[in-house]
Design a binder for these strands. Structure first.
Lengths: 331, 331
DNA sequence: CTGAAAGCGCTAACAT
DNA sequence: ATGTTAGCGCTTTCAG
């Protein structure tokens, strides 16, 4: 049996289709009796509105598309939670997709949302070119989270990566470290800013820079750590680009018999639950994920419902979370 | 400027709208000249098909909806990866949503996908009632992954939780453990089967059962471990319902000064990357996530494209991964 | 191979 | 308060 349509409900309730439409959406210009009849008929028939049809007719979906860069990275769920909560408050729904760590899939995900006519898109992290992102932002309201980007076409929500990075360096230098290596996330979101903070602070203190280019993944942390150990440059502390790569570093150091923080101090970024585990106790940087997710949604709602078009950039302040992987050198 | 429609493309290419439709979808009954003209026009206009309209007219979306029970649980991304890969091979797209650990949101996610007219739905884990799930399965092809469920209306893909559980118990008992507590996931997906495997094996060996009801989260592992330590029952090993709760247990044991595995052995379930970290080295059970995700998609495709209606249940075989958190008692 | 015409299921004026 | 009438942008017969 085919799915019941609005006409079926109308017929059963003995009213017109238009009235069913109004009643189902809770309009106040429907007589109580009619409303009851419609609701009852819809219920009996098991009627469910066809969103494709509704969307086509109304030209809006009340849906926000969220693109999670990497499902494996424990950093992102917090943003999704924030977006989910906010979206509920505004009476919108959330649709998600992942970039599966691939710029191609990232663009594909954005385009899919555009084709689906979502009212707004939230992009988290990622490595797609800013040209491609701006191009998409011309077609749909867009908020980019956790990816510093300067554009007049879209809104951004970020923690201050540069500041977070200087917090980390300040901590390590205060502990007495001079030989601090940084594993950069390369072109990944926020990585250049963290790198800049590292370089500026090291330079300001007259320290020699030691940078390995990696990515925001565990395997890249493994590879970078191996390169660091294989080189003959002295290292007493490592600032990994994010928690996930720090975990990879930790494994390598452990396997190599280097004590953390005894021989080498280690710092991550993101303050994920994994780093917080007592067996890890990773010093890291907290960056308000839930709030970032909520902010992105409200920014989008402003564009969608109030027609704002000027770009706004929101920055949240990161904070250092000192745990057990940092200590004075040769401690 | 409004988005270009197919009519705009047709006009620009000097052909009819129907031909544009055919050309854009790669039909072979379009003259090469026309095809070129259409493609060029579409490109110049930056035309993108409106999926809502296409869906409404064709009554299919070539989209599969994937519902991830808990974004914070590192178990699920592997399933999503498998589904993503498989979906690409079949020329479908993936849309995701999360149950955010709430049965209400879980149902809402399913209904949203149905309303969006996706061609199939993959549900992972979760705690929604089987009635509700079966109800939904009447409206759309459905495959339920990692949630044992017996229904003639939908397909299922699972690892053999009962077997996995007996593998764990066999390992612990062989090591010499007699006082083994189990932290069950309660009503969560697969938890009852793991509990049954625990109870049957303990009984078969004449051992006293010791069960704490929890959930598949870290916080529930924390709470359960605290209850276990607070009770005066002897415990030399704990079998947590999944890796996430095992991590919570690990934290509590650590805080209480209990050595793992020196004082207490610990086993998880899911073999997630977090448990594999060298600092954790959690003994766990591997359950082929990528394959489960792929299987779910191909099962759905069978229903969608070949009209299969009989339910099929696929079971993959779990295997024990012994790491550093298990050892003989008083070792 | 191409075009005309008829909807898909719904919303949105516009009447009444 | 309720019904009528047009579409929304696309696919899909059906002619030619």
């Amino acid at each position: 049996m085919p799915k019941p349509t609005m006409d079926d409900v109308a017929r059963r309730a003995g009213v017109s289709r238009a009235l069913v439409s109004l009643a189902l959406r809770g309009s106040d210009k429907v007589a109580d009796a009619s409303r009851q009849a419609v609701l009852a008929a819809a219920d009996e028939l098991g009627y469910r509105p066809n969103l494709a049809a509704r969307n086509l007719a109304s030209k809006q979906t009340r849906t926000i598309g969220l693109i999670i860069n990497d499902l494996h990275n424990p950093y992102f769920p917090g943003i999704a939670d924030g977006a989910h909560d906010a979206v509920g408050r505004f009476g919108y729904r959330l649709l998600m997709n992942s970039a599966f760590l691939s710029p191609r899939d990232e663009i594909a995900a954005i385009e899919m949302f555009i084709d689906l006519q979502v009212d707004g898109v939230i992009l988290t992290g990622g490595m797609a070119s800013s040209k491609a992102i701006e191009h998409a932002a011309r077609a749909v309201p867009m908020a980019v989270v956790s990816r510093p980007l300067s554009s007049s076409l879209l809104d951004t929500v970020n923690n201050d990566d540069y500041l977070g990075s200087t917090l980390v360096l300040g901590h390590l230098i205060a502990l007495g470290h001079r030989h601090i290596a940084h594993i950069s996330g390369g072109p990944a979101a926020g990585a250049p800013q963290r790198l800049a903070g590292y370089e500026a602070t090291m330079r300001a203190h007259g320290l020699e820079r030691h940078v390995e280019i990696g990515a925001f993944t565990e395997v890249s942390g493994v590879a970078a750590a191996q390169r660091i150990l294989a080189s003959d440059r002295p290292v007493t502390a490592i600032f990994a680009g994010n928690d996930l790569s720090a975990l990879g570093v930790l494994d390598v150091l452990d396997a190599a018999g280097r004590r953390v923080p005894g021989d080498i101090s280690l710092v991550g970024y993101d303050n994920t639950y994994v780093g917080a585990l007592r067996h890890i106790r990773l010093t890291s940087v907290e960056q308000q994920r839930h709030e970032q997710g909520e902010l992105a949604v409200s920014l989008l709602i402003e564009r969608i419902e109030h027609g704002r078009t000027e770009a706004v950039q929101r920055v949240v302040t990161p904070s250092l979370v000192v745990r057990g992987t940092t200590a004075p050198p040769n401690g």
